Every structure is written in C-alpha cells, then in structure tokens.
Computed example of a mutant assay.
Amino acid sequence: MASKSSTSIARRARTRAEADFATWLMMAKLGSFDTLPENAQKVLNGYRERLDRMSEIESKAIAVRETYQAYYSDMGGTGDAPEPEPRSPAPADRSEGAVDNVVRFKKPQKPKVTRTADRGARPVSPSGARRPVPALLIFAALCAIVVAWKFLTK
C-alpha cells in the first residue's frame, strides 16, 4: 500500500499532467506548437504518432500517463508512479453518450422579482432586506443641507 505522501504526490502529479496535456493540445491546435517547451513537443509528437495506430482516447491516455510518470518523479515520488484511483462517476446530469472534453454551461438563474402592493414603498432586495441608500444620494443630501444652512443664516 502506498504511503499518504506518495498518494498525495501521485494525485497532484496526475492532475497537473492532465491539465498540462490539455493545455498543450489546445495550444498546438491554435498554431502555437513551436512555442511549447521541448518536453511538451515530445509528448505531443508521440501522441500524434500513436493516433495512426490507435484511437484518440487511447493515445491521450498514454500521453497523460507518460507525463504523469515524469511529474511524479520530479515531485519527489519514488519508484514507479502508482495507478490513480478511479474517479467517481460524474453527476447525474451527464448523458450516456456524453464526451468527456465537452464543457456544458449552465444559464444563470434570473433573480426573482418581488412585487409590492404599495408602489411608493422602498424597493426590497430578493433576500428580503432593505437596500442600502447609495452614498452619492447621502452626499447630495448633505450638500443640500449645508447650502440651505448657509442661505438661511445670512
């Protein structure tokens, strides 16, 4: 059984390898392959060569595994990098045929509008508390009071 520190190193190395590979792949697709570090270019070249022989998912898994092993040893892990624990299944909103690299955006919920019986009443925030008076309004009221005081005392 792996020690707690090697498990922590393995988890961080795996996360970093997955993120870096995705970043490198996107940069290469956007035409910035030549600006990538030498190790990134090496991993992507191997990934491209394997695409001729196997599926994209298998090639990606091998490329991430190679990067993970390199990061594991760089972060102080000893021996071979342990196999990562399988991740828990995604939330129930994922359909059966969903692709892992698809990002789904959720629309923000519109704030609920509360209607007041009295139209002249002060607006109330959605949480039910009164809205604070804006600082500019307070400043204008104070200026008006000072001007009125000066005018009335002369």
Rank of each mutant, 00 (worst) to 15 (best):
A61Q: 09
I62N: 04
I62K: 09
I62F: 06
A63F: 01
V64Q: 03
V64W: 05
T67L: 15
Y68E: 02
Y68L: 03
Y68G: 10
Q69A: 14
Q69T: 09
A70D: 04
A70H: 08
Y71G: 05
Y71C: 04
D74N: 14
D74F: 07
M75I: 05
M75P: 02
G77A: 03
G77D: 00
G79L: 07
A81G: 01
E83G: 08
E83V: 13
P84T: 02
P84L: 01
E85Y: 07
P86H: 03
P89F: 04
A90R: 12
A90M: 03
P91F: 05
P91T: 12
A92Y: 07
A92G: 08
A92V: 13
R94Q: 07
E96H: 08
G97H: 05
A98E: 15
V99D: 13
V99I: 12
V99F: 07
V99P: 03
V99L: 13
N101A: 11
N101M: 03
V103S: 09
V103I: 15
V103L: 13
K106M: 14
K107F: 06
P108R: 12
P108Y: 00
Q109G: 14
P111H: 01
K112W: 02
K112C: 05
A117E: 06
D118Q: 03
R119N: 00
A121M: 05
A121T: 06
V124T: 15
V124W: 04
S125L: 14
P126K: 10
S127F: 03
S127L: 09
S127W: 04
G128T: 01
A129N: 11
R130C: 10
V133C: 06
V133M: 07
P134L: 05
A135V: 04
A135K: 07
A135N: 07
A135I: 08
L136E: 14
L137A: 12
L137H: 11
I138L: 15
F139G: 11
F139K: 15
A140D: 12
A140V: 15
A140C: 11
A141W: 00
A141M: 07
A141N: 09
A141Y: 01
L142T: 13
C143T: 13
C143S: 14
